[in-house]
Amino acid sequence: MKAWDFVFLAYGIVWSALVFYLTVLRRRCRKIEAELVRLQSPGDKKKNEQK
C-alpha cells in the first residue's frame, strides 16, 4: 500500500463512521418523535388503557 492509500483509508473510515453515527442518531430521533406524537394525540384513550 502506498502512502496516499493509507491517508485515504484513514479519512474514509473516519468520515464514514461519523456520517453513519449521525444517520443512526437521526433515525432513532425520528422513531421517538413518531412515538411521542402517537402517545400525545389519541393520548387520553391510550393513557387510560395503559393505566
Partner: peptide, 11 residues
C-alpha cells in the same frame, strides 16, 4: 419526554 408522557399523560 416519552417516558414522562407514558407515566403522567400528555402535557
Amino acid at each position: 419526554e416519552v417516558k414522562k408522557t407514558r407515566l403522567y399523560g400528555a402535557a
